[in-house]
Design a protein around this nucleic acid. Structure first.
Length: 895
RNA sequence: GCCUUGGUGGCGGAAUUGGUAGACGCGCUGGAUUCAAAAUCCAGUUCUUUCGGGAGUGUGGGUUCGAUUCCCACCCAAGGUACCA
């Protein structure tokens, strides 16, 4: 019988679906294991071979954990609200819901062909009304909560203590100022030509990414999430997470906590408050700088300088953030004419304004210490301001940012600068001229989008007064609109539906909030809904949450290192504080899969001509590289010109200069449609089968690493699976024997069991497959057909090649699915060997050179092996210590 | 600039974390089978060599009986970040 992967895979995919083989049990005595993939946005272009990398890895872990006796939850869903479907709707008028549904169907179809062991009964889509109802519910929870800084947790808004003597309006604005979801007027990117608000990523150099139209900052009312209240907890709790260090680090940097002081510098009766992390350098503060947006500028500018200041302020307001950044090397600024009093040294120092100081960070003003800060140093040198060195160290004229003892600090000279930090803060606090403070880079999260295809915000307005919808009013369904474009006033498309916007409750008229939530909202809590997806009374049952959470393994791309993972952690902590979930963190272990890169092909066109020249013939010609579809190029980089012309008619009148063949050059790039280098998993499945694809993707290299796709190598894995299949056959017939396996075979078998179990735990799937290959080659050369070996070997390989193993499992006469089988145990005996040249004694009696066999377990070996006296004679004490360390590591398992 | 990760054959990548570098796979070479091809199987494959060896894990040092692995300096590549005081 030939290995007919097509028939086998179809059969078992159908079987798993019909029998719900991978249904996760909500009532189980087994230990639980929750494996989660970052759910995809169902884009129109379908999957390429890079997408399934993470899904295959998580599937292997799921299947492995099942065979290790865990109750595994491995769900999948779709992050189905989002921009592309909406843009497509704007272009074609087609409802995003329809596009989304089509794309989801296509994604599911493609995923199913890979034999992934999802529990599809738990599928969710963030755009389903039964789902976003609860997203809205969580929004209301945030709206109706505040952060209690004393208890360090969120509390229901009813518990908020309201100061006395406030009138009704003041009470309301006080409550609003504490809500975790609140409205604020914020500068957004507004593009007049496109009539829409753009995200920061959509603005390039002050122009819109699409069209290249000017973009201006414009204040608009936005919903904002008070994530900054959670900054400390989001930072501190990182330490308990088993996440890749770079991801933790980028979250840490994003939160950007810095401890320092706010210091008042008086100008007559006015004062300017600055933030600094280096209060110890206050004696070196020779001038102040305010951001151009600083509100005090008008008051402190003297008449003499008023003109130049207002010119500078106006210029700065026109600059985009990007333009400001470009000036990093060439700082600009203007003197205000005022002088401020240094509260410690009592020196009068000039006050400048400059756009190198950001209004949005700290107090929007700094004390400049040019001797010990690079930026201040640059500015001072350019405008010829005083530079006073107050910490000893570094070269004479260089800016020194390190530590040392104080100089030029009057009575404090000689003190260590780190000690001086607390001294100076104490002194400032006693004079009421400064306090110790902490600042964060993290900003509150702008939560609204002027879009159609997102969750409507369940808030209504009575004039400016906000009213939250009640639980019974949910879900607030997304209304139909005539056009998916934002209105000319920059309002969301929802504002186009007047019948929906104007509502009347008990005879009173209200207006609805027309903005929608950002795409992040749905992905902030989807892992909770998977636990109890059909619950109509709660977002998920509390006992079930307690059983399943936290997510034990979360696999996804590193592009979500900051935003998604930070937002999800934030919501989870709020839900924890309000007692809806049982863990402070949602994701215990995180693994980032690398990207699979495409191997692009380029034809070379001679510049300014329509002549294409074969890559091997290029000598001095200047050429341009043009992408050509990789499916028209063979392994030897020869281009099939006829097929290219058929598919891309623009090549019809091209003159191809070539020898026997036309050669292209190759380069590794990201996989994308526009680079014509996309390899679809469907094609690979058709030619080699899903099992081969799964194994090959894992065999390519470490899961975290980005690596180029190369279809040529897949034949190795394919022939391995064929060999494996043939192990179970003789003369084209299925055959296994009842023979006792030989010692040789047992040795390699036990070694493989141990290695596979270890390597899956370490996510080292490529080495796992290598050892399986070695094992199969060995069994083949030993001609081993023993059922005693082949049966457990099937269980070993089943996470990698599930269809093939199910088929062989059935041929062996088993009735149940192989996925229910326990993972085999392995025997351990040890061969101890040392590559070190000195003899080692065992039990104080026998001496060995280099190698000896022992029938011991690991612990016994550590205890029993000692160096004998004769050996010690040759060695120093230091070397003996080292040998004792070595002896632990020379243990080799063989059986 | 800063941070992070990495640099090993023609290629993807191993090396039990300090102990025979190059496992496993691709490719390539030779052979068997075949009328032939595909497929399959066997052998070889880091470089160099006067066939004794010699060199070799980005470069240069260091620690060690022993370094791909640890330490120092530098070079290169990829990703992230950007005047955060």
């Amino acid at each position: 019988m030939k290995y007919d992967f097509f028939k086998i895979e179809k059969k078992w995919q159908k079987y798993w679906l019909e029998n719900k083989t991978f249904k996760a049990d909500n009532n189980s005595v087994k230990p639980k294991y929750y494996v989660l993939d970052m759910f995809p946005y169902p884009s129109g272009s379908g999957l390429h071979v890079g997408h399934p990398l993470g899904y295959i890895a998580s599937d292997i872990v799921s299947r492995f954990k099942r065979s290790k006796g865990f109750n595994v939850l491995h769900p999948m869903g779709f992050d189905s609200f989002g921009l592309p479907a909406e843009q497509y709707a704007v272009k074609t008028g087609q409802h995003p819901k329809k596009t989304t549904e089509e794309n989801v169907a296509r994604f599911k179809d493609q995923l199913d062909k890979l034999g992934l062991s999802f529990d599809w009964d738990r599928e969710i889509k963030t755009s389903d009304i039964g789902y976003y109802r609860w997203t809205q519910w969580i929004f209301l929870k945030l709206f109706n909560s505040y952060y209690d800084h004393r208890l360090k947790k969120a509390q229901p808004i009813e518990k908020l203590k309201i100061p006395k003597n406030l009138n009704e309006k003041e009470i309301e604005s006080f409550i609003d100022s504490r809500r975790l979801a609140y409205v604020d007027t914020i500068d957004v990117n507004w593009c007049e030509e496109l009539g829409t608000v753009l995200a920061n990523e959509e603005v390039v150099g002050g122009l819109s990414e699409r069209g290249g139209f000017p973009v201006i900052k414009r204040p608009m009312k936005q919903w904002v999430m008070r994530i900054t209240d959670y900054a400390d907890r989001l930072l501190d709790d990182l330490s308990e997470l088993d996440w890749p260090e770079p991801i933790k680090l980028s979250q840490k940097n994003w939160i950007g906590k810095s401890v320092g002081a706010e210091i008042k510098f008086y100008i007559d009766n006015n004062f300017i408050e600055v933030f600094t992390t280096r209060p110890d350098t206050i004696f070196g503060a020779t001038y102040l700088v305010l951001a151009p947006e600083h509100p005090l500028i008008n008051q402190i500018t003297t008449d003499e300088y008023r003109k130049s200041i207002s010119e500078y302020v106006e210029q700065a307001s026109k600059k985009s953030d990007l333009e400001r950044q470009e000036n990093e090397k060439n700082k600009t600024g203007v003197f205000t004419g005022s002088f401020a009093l240094n509260p410690i040294s009592n020196e009068k120092i000039p006050v400048w304004i400059s756009d190198y100081v950001l209004f949005s960070y700290g107090t929007g003003a700094i004390m400049a210490v040019p001797a010990h800060d690079e930026r201040d140093n640059e500015f001072a040198k350019k405008f010829d301001l005083k530079i006073i060195k107050v910490i000893d160290g570094g070269n004479k004229d260089e800016c020194y940012t390190g530590n040392g003892s104080l100089i030029n600090c009057g009575k404090y000279n000689g003190i260590d600068n780190i000690k001086f930090k607390s001294i100076v803060i104490e002194e400032l606090e006693s004079k009421n001229k400064g306090t110790k403070t902490t600042n964060y880079k993290l900003r509150d999260w702008i939560f609204t989008r002027q879009r159609y295809w997102g969750e409507p915000i369940p808030i209504i307005y009575d004039g400016n007064k906000k009213k939250a919808l009640e639980f019974g009013d949910l879900p607030l369904e997304l209304p139909e609109v005539e056009s998916y474009l934002p209105t000319n006033d920059g309002l969301s498309p929802l504002a186009r539906n007047n019948d929906w916007v104007n509502i009347s409750i008990n005879g009173k008229n209200y207006l609805r909030e027309t903005n929608t939530m950002p795409q992040w909202a749905g992905s902030c809590w989807y892992f909770l809904r998977f636990i109890d997806p059909d619950n109509n009374n709660e977002f998920a049952n509390k006992d079930l949450i307690k059983y399943w959470m936290p997510v034990d393994l979360y696999i996804g791309g590193a592009e979500h290192a900051v935003l998604h993972l930070l937002y999800a952690r934030f919501w989870h902590k709020v839900l924890f504080d309000l007692d809806y979930v049982s863990t402070t963190e949602p994701f215990k272990k995180l693994v980032n899969q690398g990207m699979i890169l495409g191997n692009s092909a380029f034809a070379h066109r001679i510049k300014n001509t329509n002549d294409f020249i074969s890559f091997d013939m290029i000598k001095d010609e200047k050429t341009q590289k043009i992408h050509v579809d990789v499916s028209f190029v063979d392994e030897k980089n020869r281009l099939n010109i006829e097929r290219l012309k058929q598919k891309n008619p623009e090549f019809n009148d091209v003159n191809f200069i070539k020898g026997e063949s036309f050669y292209v050059s190759r380069d590794i790039e990201k996989m994308s449609k526009s680079r014509y280098n996309v390899i679809s998993p469907d094609d690979i499945c058709k030619r080699y089968g899903a099992d081969t694809l799964r194994m090959y993707e894992m065999f390519l290299g470490p899961i975290e690493q980005s690596k180029p796709w190369n279809t040529a190598g897949i034949s190795g894995v394919f022939s391995f699976l064929n060999k494996f299949w043939n192990l179970f056959h003789r003369n084209e017939e299925f055959y296994v024997s009842d023979d006792q396996p030989s010692d040789e075979v047992l040795k390699i078998y036990h070694k493989t069991v141990k290695k596979v179990a270890n390597d899956i735990d370490k996510f080292s799937f490529n080495t796992c497959i290598s050892s399986l290959m070695i094992c199969v080659n060995e069994l083949k050369s030993q001609n081993c057909k023993s059922k005693k070996i082949l049966e457990p070997l099937l269980i070993l390989i089943s996470p990698f090649a599930p269809h093939l193993s199910e088929e062989l499992w059935e041929l062996m006469g088993n009735k149940k699915s192989i996925s229910a089988e326990p993972f085999p145990e392995h025997d351990e005996r040890y061969l101890v060997e040392s590559s070190y040249d000195y003899p080692i004694s065992f039990n104080g009696k026998r001496r060995f050179n280099k190698k000896f066999n022992l029938d011991l377990n690991e612990k016994e070996i550590e205890k029993e092996i000692l160096l004998d006296d004769q050996t010690k004679k040759y060695l120093t004490d230091n070397s003996i210590k080292k040998i004792i360390i070595i002896k632990k590591k020379i243990i080799n398992i063989v059986f």
